[in-house]
Design a protein around this nucleic acid. Sequence first.
DNA 1: ATCCTCCCCTAC
DNA 2: TAAGGTAGGGGAGGAT
Length: 812
Amino acid sequence: MSRRRQQNRDDEDNGFAEWGGYFEAKKAKLREQYKETAAKQVEKISDIFTGVSIFVNGLTNPSSDQLKLLMAQHGGTFHLYQSSSTTHIIASNLPNVKINKLGSLPIVKPSWVTDSIALNKLLDYKRYLLYTNQSTSQPRLDFPVVPKTASDPHFLQEFYSNSRLHLISTLGAEFKQFIADLRDKPREFPGRSKLEVSKTGAPPQTPVVMHIDMDCFFVSVGLRTRPELRGLPVAVTHARRAQLNPNKEREETVTLNMDRVAQGGELGMIDGRSSMSEVASCSYEARKCGVRNGMFLGAAAKLCPQIKTIPYDFEGYKEVSMILYKTLSSYTLNIEAVSCDEMYVEVTDLLKTFNLSVEEWANHIRGEIKTATGCPCSAGFGSNRLQARLATKKAKPDGFYYLKPEDVESYMAEIALADLPGVGYATLNKLKSLGLETCGDVQVASLGVLQKELGAKMGETLLEQAKGIDQKPLNYHHERKSVSAEINYGIRFKTIDECYNFLESLGNEVWSRLNEIKMRAKTVTLKVMIRAPDAPLETAKFLGHGLCDSVSKSVTIAHHISDVKILQREIRSLYEKMNVNYGELRGLGVQLTKLEKLAPINPTLSNFLQQESKKSDSSDTVKSKMATRGRPRKNSKGQKNSLSDFFKNKKETPVQNKPLEMKPTEVDPEVLKELPPEIRAEIIKEYNLAPKPPVKKSLTWPQIKPPVKKSPFSGLTWPQIKPILHKWLQSEQKPDDYDVTLLGEHFRQLAIDRDIDWLPTAMNFLYRNFGEMNCFWHKAYHKIVDLVQQGMVARYGGTLLIKRDFDCLHCV
DNA sequence: ATCCTCCCCTAC
DNA sequence: TAAGGTAGGGGAGGAT
């Protein structure tokens, strides 16, 4: 995540560098504002802003808080963060404006709000645009939009930034790491000062495990800023409406798929006009109608016609889950992170120390979480993780339940087998075939029968689970056993090269994830999904995988994979061995297993790097780490020698102990330049580093003309500029206005010269990392608007495409 | 017996 | 339109 989501870092080292500092900066403010919201009820005055959803950026007059109140009073929605539901950005002053969607949202002066209220009607915002060039006569940048498949080089990135499943997976892993890291530091529990030793409490004499889980997490986060939807059936989906526009072709496709695929399944509930966007999360009101997470929106709307949809808010989920974890970890670190909204906590000692009953503690912690996040959660307690988890089911929504040891036997007997963790669709069917439906049934079943149906291990655990027994202790430190990237959406290759390119990007993806956790792998597995022979060519779900067969193949090498090129070669050879038709592919995945931790590098060098890494931590490899560290602080002999030793050792180290791969070609000139002179000289000598040949420009586009003014960026191309920006990003040393202006001028000139080959890359980078410093691209903005008008640059989602990419997409 | 590969299943 | 990922547990069946 850190790799993809580098945020502006204008905060001090906060110990959560992997969160890019973003959360820390906003957290206090968020908490404060929710306290306020909880405290006062807003009186409704009018509905003039119905459908309007504002995001306030920077200082405004009236203030953000006042605008929030005004929106609440007049039927609008106020966002703390820009989300996909935002309709207008409110800002007063140019340098502070964060342009997030590159022109796709209007940036409006706050007087639009106050004037509208004064006249008691919604005024046309176009008269209040902060940028004059956003007037109606000017084109908007969000055109034209083209459908993209995995054939497009931007696909992976685009897909990940919209995938809920990817998000919850990565967040889960982040929080496991978060807890592990905290446990490695000296422990402090500031939260405990909020607890008093209870006079009346009676802590249980048996061990107590708490299971805590946010209630319909995505919905709750979305409702923070949409109080008007509380109490209604709500679902989080990509689609806005359950009914699509009539489309004959699609209706036929869906019908065709229904015949072949699903007999009485969910497809039976939809037709060619129903949205097949998945419900990521639904409110309890929607669940009452039978709506379930994972359902297609079309099916959900059949069950619950009045269902309201709200968009995803990925930033919000990260915010809230971070607050949740920081809240709990301020009391104890005996936490096993399960996911972004769920964890187990061993609270036996905590209850004893403060003489708390389960109820006192539950009320305290649930109250604190609600106040801090604005979202409800439920807590279950029991003497092991299984009991705690089952107690949570009873506690939901927004409650707690303690399953006492003496109640376990009777409680368990009534539990449906489907409620046991580990019992899903397939297992449930097997158990049904044995005539078993509740834990009570299983309690009296024979171990042999269970094992015959489910296998030795599963049979045994099921029997134990049915009795409420769970031997597995909480796992506070968890060790990764595999790293994988898999895409089973949008895979429609037209040529074998598209397929190879995509495999390569998957390879790069897993490789960089492996580097993030500082591990190496010995086994590569390629997994493919292939259209089932009898499945229709087109899937019912847009770009879905449809009915597929899946095949996987793996290779294990003697030593760990030391270079991404080797990985790419292995992936490709696995693919070739599979002998599949690229046109039939519907999914591809690369998994790395047999992991080993990279041997710790030379301790003195390690110190050297660590000193530098205090500033931030978001790099993939030593190379990029060094490239982004900025200037080394010290220049002592010891460091010099150790670095030199490191390079020497590296050559002589046996392969399996090879610490970090660094080939001479990987030594970045930018890095070299920044190193202390002696070290630089030594590396150059050691590796006979020749100066890098200048980057060749494509002939299809005009050569760069230097900007009029003398600029530090004169004649530089994007690959050369990027490390400089990286350095700005990562150091306290901020670029001064002059540099920024010159860079903007440089970009503008490039746009004029039509040297837009790399301009989108640069703009996307700036947009992601320097959103606050909009003057960067604002300089070039007007010119880009022209280019868009001429069809030279198009926008897809949050990404700019140049004409060539765009044309090639049209051909497809 | 034990390990390995190729699955399948489950959870969030 | 839509964004069906990712990690871990474990079983079947063959190789050692």
